[in-house]
Amino acid sequence: MFYAGVFQKLSVVAPKPKPFHLHQLTETTRQSVAKRPRTMTTDSSLKDAFSKYADYLNDLNDKRERVVKASRDITMNSKKVIFQVHRIGKSNKDEVLEKAERDLEAVRGQHVSRLVKQLQGTDFWKLRRAYSPGIQEYVEAATFCKFCRTGTLLDLDEINAALLPLSDPSIEPLQINILDYLLGLADLTGELMRLAIGRISDGDLEFAMEICRFVRNIHRELTLLVPDMDDSIDMKTKMDTMLQSVMKIENACCSVHVRGSEYIPFLGSSDPSYSSMGVPDIDL
């Protein structure tokens, strides 16, 4: 009875323990973690590797900007060469081509050489998208001049041989790859189509027929080659455009051949080399 009374008094005097909640433990842990400073232990060699890689990316981005600028200059000046060649006629062929060839040499010496210097010591494939448009336009201008001068195709080895003097012999030289060459060659057919239409309008049917045979041969060879190439959306698109150029040249030449009497004011009916229909017999 005595102990019961004592326990009863203690229960009245002693304070009841406060309930403990889980969120209090979470809050305490969060505050203690927040007070501790965060430190990252990184090996010095890893830091140096990150630093070097960052510098490499910065240099590559700067170089890409310079390569893009050089490619734009090549494109712009190569187009000027192409426009110059389109001025060709029966009486001014040598004069026009000499001027175009000098301009093309200036493009190679001033702008292509600047591109070559930027790409020396670099993996060319990393920046190919940056300089490919300019290279394609240069290939188009160079092959355009060669065909109008000799009636033959300027191949890839000849183009790359002309670029070798621009490179440092101790460093791997820039060489145009086969895809950029073929893309430029596909664009060439469009310029030849425009030239052929212009030559027909001036009465130079023989030259137009030469262009027609040349463009047809290019299209036939590429039709056999492109399916075996790696997947290239640009090449497939240009093949469709090339076919349209071939058809336009063939239709223009065929119209002149079949309806030649309507072209007598252009071709000249007094020329004894022409038949009674106004044009000679030419196999299409």
Rank of each mutant, 00 (worst) to 15 (best):
4 A>S: 10
5 G>Y: 05
7 F>W: 05
8 Q>C: 11
8 Q>L: 11
11 S>R: 14
15 P>C: 00
16 K>H: 05
17 P>W: 00
20 F>K: 03
21 H>C: 04
22 L>P: 00
26 T>Q: 10
26 T>K: 06
28 T>D: 14
30 R>K: 06
31 Q>G: 07
33 V>W: 12
35 K>W: 12
39 T>Q: 09
39 T>R: 10
40 M>L: 14
42 T>E: 15
44 S>K: 14
45 S>Y: 09
46 L>F: 12
47 K>M: 11
47 K>W: 15
48 D>M: 12
51 S>C: 06
51 S>W: 03
51 S>I: 09
53 Y>D: 11
54 A>K: 10
60 L>K: 08
60 L>F: 13
62 D>H: 11
63 K>F: 02
76 M>C: 13
76 M>I: 14
77 N>F: 13
81 V>G: 02
82 I>L: 03
85 V>Q: 00
86 H>K: 07
86 H>E: 03
87 R>M: 07
96 V>Y: 00
97 L>R: 01
99 K>C: 01
103 D>S: 12
103 D>E: 06
108 R>Q: 15
109 G>W: 07
113 S>F: 07
118 Q>S: 11
119 L>W: 05
120 Q>A: 13
122 T>P: 00
127 L>R: 05
128 R>I: 14
129 R>K: 11
131 Y>L: 12
134 G>F: 07
136 Q>R: 12
137 E>I: 08
140 E>S: 00
143 T>Y: 02
144 F>P: 00
146 K>M: 08
146 K>V: 09
147 F>W: 05
147 F>Y: 09
150 T>P: 02
153 L>V: 05
154 L>W: 01
154 L>K: 02
155 D>L: 04
155 D>C: 09
156 L>E: 05
162 A>Q: 13
162 A>K: 13
164 L>K: 15
168 D>E: 13
169 P>H: 08
172 E>G: 02
177 N>Q: 12
178 I>Y: 15
178 I>M: 15
182 L>D: 13
183 L>D: 10
183 L>F: 10
185 L>R: 03
186 A>G: 14
190 G>T: 10
190 G>A: 09
191 E>Y: 08
193 M>D: 13
194 R>S: 10
194 R>C: 15
195 L>A: 09
195 L>E: 11
196 A>T: 08
197 I>L: 15
198 G>H: 15
201 S>A: 15
209 M>H: 10
211 I>W: 01
213 R>F: 09
215 V>Y: 00
218 I>K: 00
219 H>P: 00
219 H>K: 02
223 T>D: 12
228 D>V: 00
229 M>S: 08
233 I>Y: 13
238 K>H: 04
239 M>N: 03
239 M>V: 06
240 D>C: 02
242 M>L: 10
243 L>C: 02
244 Q>C: 01
245 S>M: 03
246 V>Q: 03
246 V>N: 01
247 M>Y: 02
247 M>W: 01
250 E>P: 01
250 E>R: 02
250 E>V: 04
251 N>C: 06
254 C>W: 04
256 V>G: 05
264 I>Q: 08
268 G>C: 12
268 G>S: 09
271 D>M: 04
271 D>G: 06
271 D>E: 03
273 S>H: 02
273 S>W: 02
273 S>C: 10
276 S>Q: 14
278 G>A: 04
279 V>W: 03
280 P>S: 14
282 I>N: 11
